[in-house]
Design a protein around this nucleic acid. Structure first.
Lengths: 358, 358
DNA sequence: TTCGTTTTCGAAACCGGTTTCGGCAACTGT
DNA sequence: ACAGTTGCCGAAACCGGTTTCGAAAACGAA
């Protein structure tokens, strides 16, 4: 009922300011501010009275007015690097949803910017920090040696990695243990009787690509399988180069009976290469991949893959970064998640192998 | 050389403030502020001197400090509604890139939030406006009757629609004339000899869906074809429901020889339904669609579709909104774009028809 | 009762910019 | 030469919050 202006004219709804609230209560704005921010020198009685009045009048502080004194704008920064063929693009919406939801829960917001090169990314980070558009940053797609980390570390700006890095001193991070999933995939295939298991790695430079390669090797070791370098194809991220990588494996003199891909995008190409050679996926050739892109269920047969809950990852990252901005030590802000195996139709017993022991 | 501290300790790089700049110049901060903001009461000589010093010292105003007086935070708001099956999701990254790029060019930033329902969207708009996290909003996926428009209009908050709406009084907007593309598609098919052309519309409620339906009808009229209600399938947005819609058309007693889809997602399902019935796309059944999703090129045969330059659309929207926030009249901020036809393999001469007249 | 603590709040400075106002100096016109 | 403009800048208020400091009031102990 408060501002339902009786005048049919253009009524500027007139924000409720701190002083208005204070006047209404017969207090000074300093007192009201401290009451709302839970300072210990305010009596419980007054605190409660202030809270109720603030609620009733619908008082909401202007975040940039607070920022001028506190130095914190309550905003998470995200600089996305957009590539032509970006395997992670389908997950963008989910990722944003996770970030935004967790940020909103703490009354923070999300400031996003996009860049098309490493240099532009650093430029944006610079601009956003110096103009204080964000209190900290989420760094997706971490590289082993990441210029963004050096940059922010030097300026003492909080950040959280999505992924790990070589030198994690002072870094908070969240990551999915994709190396464990790849290792599990290889182990599973070995149990199914596969003796020659190929691998299509992800793009070099990114930490996750290295880790998944390690996972492949670990899986071979656990399955007591020899490591044949020929079974590691050139890196592939999307359908077209995935087909090329698969071709190099399938055209080997002694081709693999199973292929593990570091990313689903490449697996799409494996299907193409297999079809072209008359190989039936799931029987002639087993494929297990990683990511959980939506198209995976539409393939024939549906692709067995490890699905990442990208929305949940975003939520965790936002939470970690907010805590980091509030002063928590980076060493206490490190988490690992796991991808969930979606057993579908693209993997099976090795051709000519006996039923596996459970 | 300025702040390369000789001390190897943790050097807080100490921002350059307006007063610092003023002291350096022997001026007051008020004068410097006016010089940088091009006030007329500053001599050209002083203005130039200030600009150079600002450049040299690397002075960058704190945007939230400016905001407290000006009321403008230089940020565009974007509230995305995330659906389970969202046909527009693949374009998210491109859209953000366009917005971000155009915003950055004017030194604005982008604040994004996500919602999962209409009510939550309004909540977020409310929070972002009252806390002044954004100066205005971009409203994607406009509906014929859109609650967001009413909401923002009542509060006198600037906004720009991506799409049109029923009552566009006071609305700035950018839109692609998709109805023209659909009309062109139908016309093209008619010229190719198709007499029965089916249509798979988009989800009801959205303006674009209605417009594309109009475009279908207009195309029929231009091709002097009768409108058979049976040729309009149930709405579909994604592959699965697209297949169902296509089935209703293909199982007709007198099925169409061509199908136009309002969105590419549905066209994917049309391929499925056609394959299931042994129809060869491009010869037995022509398909033309709209959107330009990347998968379209990977289909067999590649899908003929009208491609929207989503990045460019984002850039235009950001530009319009910034101008709107700076006071331009909404009536002067309305633009239309066009999608580009990508003639690929999914459409051809009608079965049993003579070569068409040019 | 008296003195020292503690609790609780008011007053005012403060954050980093922008905007208003007034005054000095340099022009203009006669 | 003198009054009236005009150009240009300093001083100070201002935006809407937060934080510091000090003092009054309430409390506790002797």
């Amino acid at each position: 009922m408060q501002f339902c202006g009786d005048t049919p004219r253009s009524e500027p709804p007139k924000r409720v300011r701190l002083v208005d609230l204070a006047a209404q209560l017969g207090l000074t704005k300093g007192t009201v501010s401290r009451a709302l921010n839970d300072h210990p020198d305010i009596s419980d009685q007054t605190r409660l009275r202030v809270r109720k009045a603030a609620e009733k009048l619908g008082y909401r502080p202007l975040s940039h007015a607070q920022a001028i004194r506190t130095g914190r704008v309550q905003s998470l920064g995200l600089v996305l690097q957009i590539y032509e063929h970006d395997a992670h693009r389908p997950f963008m919406a989910e990722f944003l949803a996770g970030l935004s939801q967790a940020a909103s829960a703490e009354d923070w917001t999300l400031t996003v910017a996009t860049a098309s090169s490493d240099a532009q990314t650093l430029d944006l980070l610079d601009r956003l920090t110096v103009e204080k558009k964000a209190d900290g940053f989420i760094l997706p797609r971490t590289k082993l040696d990441d210029a963004r980390i050096e940059f922010l570390r030097a300026r003492n700006v909080p950040f959280v990695l999505y992924g790990r890095t070589r030198e994690s001193r002072g870094c908070a991070w969240f990551d999915i243990e994709s190396e464990r999933s790849i290792e599990d995939a290889v182990t599973l295939l070995a149990r199914l009787g596969h003796r020659r298991i190929g691998f299509v790695p992800g793009a070099q430079g990114y930490t996750y690509a290295e880790l998944r390669r390690d996972g492949y090797l670990a899986g071979l070791a656990r399955g007591a399988l020899a490591h044949d370098r020929q079974l590691v194809a050139p890196p592939a991220m999307a359908r077209d180069d995935g087909a090329i990588s698969a071709a190099t494996l399938l055209d080997l003199a002694d081709p693999p009976s199973a292929i593990v891909c570091a990313v689903d995008g490449a697996a799409l190409g494996v299907y193409d290469a297999a079809r072209q050679r008359g190989l039936k996926i799931g029987t002639d050739l087993s494929v297990i991949s990683y990511d959980g892109i939506p198209e995976a269920t539409l393939l024939d047969p549906p692709l067995s893959t490890y699905r990442v809950d990208t929305r949940a990852a975003g939520a965790r990252l936002a939470d970690l970064l907010i805590r980091r901005c509030r002063g928590a030590a980076p060493e206490d802000l490190r988490e690992l998640g796991r991808a969930a195996f979606q057993a579908r139709g693209s993997h099976g017993v090795a051709p000519g192998a006996a039923q596996p022991a459970t």
